[in-house]
């Protein structure tokens, strides 16, 4: 039940953002949506803290628990952006992802895994937290990229409608995508380095057959690809936005393909 409340609040916030877009309101609408998002984050923090107190472990392993924590990191990143008036509007593209993660987590049940872990302690917490930050950095770049492409389309179509007025300027979205990508890339790289160091030290190999490892490396390569598209052949904001959207889609698809075909150990993949 505690994990349902943030889900409702995020959904409510998303509905309010959509209402702002449709009604073109500039006044209290965005403020109400921002407050609801922040309330969702607070409720989410309480829910995760409750998990910690109840089970004596951080909600980082177990499929539902991990997804809920990933959603929390996304909501945290979004809440940081809320005071920045124009950037806050990226919520309309980021909240569906957060809602989907939390929704799946609630459906599957936010519970710890019964499996015993050999990688644990502070190193493990750092590894998982950095990986979550990395993926949410990519999600932020994706959300900014989607809005960039829509705004670009509106400008090209010479149509100054609801989307034009609601969506932030191209330069703002590009800056946000850049921050998300570089921060996400740095975090994921560190997360992989931690995981790699532990695996090599404790298992003597890189465990390349593990779907989690395969997916993490694929994700890292996607990051490299997106960053390459942004800076290679001269900076191109449009190409960068397109690459972020396609790259994020690629990461999600590869996750689903790996989960459905290879399957995982139930910890995260």
């Amino acid at each position: 039940m505690t994990h349902l409340l943030p889900l409702f609040l995020y959904t409510g916030a998303f509905i309010l953002w959509v209402r702002c877009l449709v009604r073109g309101s500039q006044g209290r609408g965005p403020l109400a949506a921002s407050i609801l998002t922040a309330a969702g984050l607070l409720a989410h923090a309480v829910a995760l803290a409750h998990f910690w107190l109840q089970y004596g472990e951080l909600p980082l392993v177990g499929f539902g628990a991990a997804l809920s924590s990933l959603a929390f990191v996304g909501a945290l990143a979004l809440t940081v952006m809320l005071p920045l008036r124009e950037m806050s509007r990226v919520a309309i593209a980021l909240l569906p992802f957060i809602i989907a993660l939390q929704g799946i987590a609630v459906l599957l049940g936010v519970e710890p895994t019964p499996l015993a872990l050999d990688f644990e302690g502070a190193g493990f917490v750092l590894h998982v937290s950095l990986a979550f930050l990395g993926y949410q950095g990519l999600a932020v770049a994706f959300a900014a990229g989607v809005l960039y492409l829509i705004q670009h389309h509106e400008l090209k179509a010479k149509r100054l409608g609801r989307f034009f007025h609601f969506i932030p300027p191209l330069a703002t979205l590009d800056r946000l995508a850049r921050i998300g990508l570089w921060a996400g890339f740095a975090c994921l790289t560190l997360a992989l380095a931690f995981g790699w160091a532990w695996t090599v030290e404790n298992r003597g190999s890189l465990a390349m057959g593990d779907p989690k490892v395969v997916w993490a490396i694929l994700s890292w390569l996607v990051f490299v690809g997106i960053l390459g598209a942004r800076v290679g052949g001269g900076r191109n904001d449009y190409r960068g936005a397109l690459a972020a959207v396609i790259g994020f889609g690629g990461v999600i698809c590869s996750y689903l393909v790996l989960r459905l075909t290879v399957g995982g150990d139930g910890l995260f993949l």
Binding site: E86, L155, F164, P169, A171
Partner: peptide
């Protein structure tokens, strides 16, 4: 003005040009 789109958009050529520039470059 805050709850409807009555004041939205620019209604002169010069202000539309500025609005377009803002939506591309931000500041």
């Amino acid at each position: 003005r805050s709850e409807t789109a009555i004041g939205h958009g620019r209604v002169s050529v010069a202000s539309v040009a500025v609005e377009l520039a803002r939506k591309i470059f931000g500041s």
